[in-house]
Each structure stands twice: as C-alpha cells, then as structure tokens.
Design a protein around this nucleic acid. Sequence first.
RNA 1: GCGGAAUUGGUGAAGUGGUUAACACACCGGUUUGUGGAUCCGGCAUGCGUGGGUUCGAUCCCCACAUUCCGCCCCA
Length: 428
Amino acid sequence: MKVQRPKGTVDILPGESGSWEKVESIARNFFKRANYREIRTPSFENYEVFSRSSGETSDVVSKEMYDFNDKGGRHIALRPEGTAGVVRAYVENKLYGPDVVKPFSVYYIDNTFRYERPQAGRQREFHQIGVESFGSDSPLADVETLMMAHDLLAELGVKNYELHINSLGNAQVREAYHDALVNYFTPVKDQLSEDSQRRLSQNPLRILDSKDERDKKFLPNAPKIVDYLDDESRKSFKTITDMLEQLGINYVMDDDLVRGLDYYTGIIFEFMVEDKNLWESATTILGGGRYNHLVEEFDGPETPAVGFGIGEERLMLVLKEQNPDLFQEEGIDFFITNIGAGTEFKAVEVARSLREQGFSAQYDVDQKKLKQQFRKADRVHATFVITLGAKELENGVLNIKRLSDGKIIDLSLEDINNMQDVINKLED
RNA sequence: GCGGAAUUGGUGAAGUGGUUAACACACCGGUUUGUGGAUCCGGCAUGCGUGGGUUCGAUCCCCACAUUCCGCCCCA
C-alpha cells in the first residue's frame, strides 16, 4: 500500500523535534514563572462550541472548519483555535466558583485544525501556544497579557516584530460602529471590490484591511472606531497604552486592525513579523485580545477574560532565521566502542552505568568493525569515545578519547563509576 | 474556494520520443576486523509523483488526479 500523509499535515522528524521541544520548554518555563498553569482540552468539540463563539459568518466557521458527523450522529469539529474549548472547559468545570483563585490563568500547547489551502506557515494541522486569563476586567490584566506575549517572544529570540493594537469596545460600540461603516460604504458599494461588496453585508470591519486599490481610496475617510468608543473603553485603552510605554513595549495604533473572530471586545492585538525571506508581506505570528462575553455565551456567569495565541509553525519559521542556536543538533556525551571477544557485553554495562550517572551514552548494537564504530560516534556527534579492548580489559584497563582533539587517556574499570571526575581530568 | 508554477535516487540535480537515466554530495563495502573526520577503489534509480491515452516505442507529447510552493480570500 502506498501511503502519504494527508494534505496540509507535516511529520516533525527527530532532526527538528528537538527544536520544538526547546521552544515549548522555554514557553512552559516562562508561563510557570507567571503562575499560568497548563490546561489540556479535547482536540474536538461539538460543532456549536466553535460556531457560536467565533461567529457563523466568520471565515473560520463558514469555510475552514474541519467538521464531521460521528457514528452517533453528533456534529463534531476539530478545534480551529484554542480559546473556545478552554472557555467551554472553564464553564463546564465551574472554574468560576468561589474556591478557585481569580484570575484563573492557564496556558495550552495544542494542535489545531483549519481546512485551508496550505502554504508556507499555513497548514491544515498546526500548533498554537496560547494563554487565557479569566475573571478580571482590569486594564492590568490586559497589560499582563500583552507583557507576557512580548516577553515570551523576546525570550524565544524573536527580534523584528511590530505590535499592533486596537480597541473594539463593548457590544454597543461595535454595533454602532458596524452601522456607521455600513452607512459609509453602502452609497459607494458599486465602486468597491467584489470581495468588499460581500464583506459589506457579512463583516464590514474586514473592508478596513482590504488590499484592493478600489477599496483603499475610501479608507482614509472611513469612520474610526476610536470615535465610537465609550468613555470606559477609551479610558481603559489609555491606561493600557500608557503602561506599555512605561514598560518600554513599543506598539503601533492600528485603526484597521480587526480580528477574524467575533468574540472579541475591548483591546485586540497582533504581533507581526516582516521578513522578505519568509513572506511577501508582514505576517501575524501572535494574536489575541479581550473577550468579555464568551463565558456568558456558554451559559456561565458574566466573566471578563483576555488571552493570546501564537502560531507555533510560524514562530518556528521566524526563529530558524533569527535564533539559529535553537536549531543546532545536539550530540551525545559518550559512544562506547569495543573490540575483541567478550567485550560486547561490557559495552552494554558501561553504557548503562553512564546513563545512570546522567550522561547520554550509546554503543554499537550492530558490532561493526572498530573503524565503523568510530564513524558512527562521529555521526552522532559524540563528545567522548570509550574503547573497550579485549587485551586491556583482562587487566582492567580501557581508554577514553576526546573526539574534538584526539586526546586519549587511560582509565581503570573503576573510573567508569565516576565519569565526571574523568571528564574533569581530561579538561585539565 | 479562485488563479499560477513545480514534481527525476537519501539529497542537489543533468537529460533524451528509441539499446546500460550524466554529474556531485551523502551512504554502504574495501584500502593489515584494534581507534574517527583524509586519499584511493568499488557499490548505490529495472526507475523519472499516480492513473490513463497517443505511439512500433515515452521519463520526455496529451488528459485527469495527487502533493508541494506562490498569489488571492482569510488567518496562526
């Protein structure tokens, strides 16, 4: 049978999985220091969990959802984003209860699915690293989220990104602004691009970031969301941006920034990276915002919340260019070669002992010629080679060689039990 | 979902309507089964994405499909 992976999926092979491990462990460690704990939710949910939260007319729901009916006739969807499932779990497990410390803050590293045409940095199965924090409407919670996003990218080694922020305000603001946009664009509808004519009825906000020249000429005079913000949103937004400045976090006010999901209220933001080697135009690697009504939408109590998600594949593409250290192949500490009758089992024992001492060690299960064993040691980037020869072993002697410069010293069998001392001796 | 390009071994690739598909790297074996990264010698695609068709004959022409990449839509 000829086999092939499904379109839009990738195998992360051992040559690369180490880099993923490093990135994820940096993230986990980072979240731990901020006291965000991990949450793991199902890869699939009932279809409505996503359709209701993201919005029926959003692209994610209307054309990118990976959904199917299971054998019990349930309408299931693979998660297209991380937030909805976490909110569902928050409500279902009554994490809003008084015995849970607020804010309730979690992170996740999950696979995620969208049915789309694949491109570089866009797959049908991909991974998101995200955080969500429930229970606080304070601007400090927004700042916390933004600061974490910024500092995590910095710690990972992402360099040339730009933080774009905007505020969508509460539901009434969005509605008023929505109407203002419709009123503004409807008289000139015939002059808009086909895409924007469609957007006008489905999601007029999206017209704002159109790349079509026919639409662009109407944008400068289009209504601005800031003019529709209520006092409270305005004040909160100001507090947030003031703090960002004091924290030394650069940002760009972006009136045209709209996010693809309907559930956002208040601040929204994206970290965009521009790199001509990777993408024609600036690409978002991290996006997020405040969503104060999603918990209610799932029949939970009124609970403000804020979070962000990082596209891990895109992050990896950027890091490969900007922090190549993360992608260096790691070798092993010891390779044990052996030659002569009765030495092969000793090699097994020595490897076991070294591993117990915390070193990485390998021996040649194929028992090739000594020369081949050395070649293999090179290929696995061993730092040291220990050689067990039949003649020497009779006298309890063996030797160790440092591959970088060929330095060799003799050891006794007992030295194996304390290799750190041997290494120190070699370094002298 | 729409438009475009690509698809030859483990990798980078050359190539032609007709007997053995170039070259390079990598890999494997040998070069005194006891010490690697060098040299030299040898091996390494019955096969040119998959399935059809045209032809005496196709990797090379035609069609369909698949996958990848690029742009659009949208997004991570």
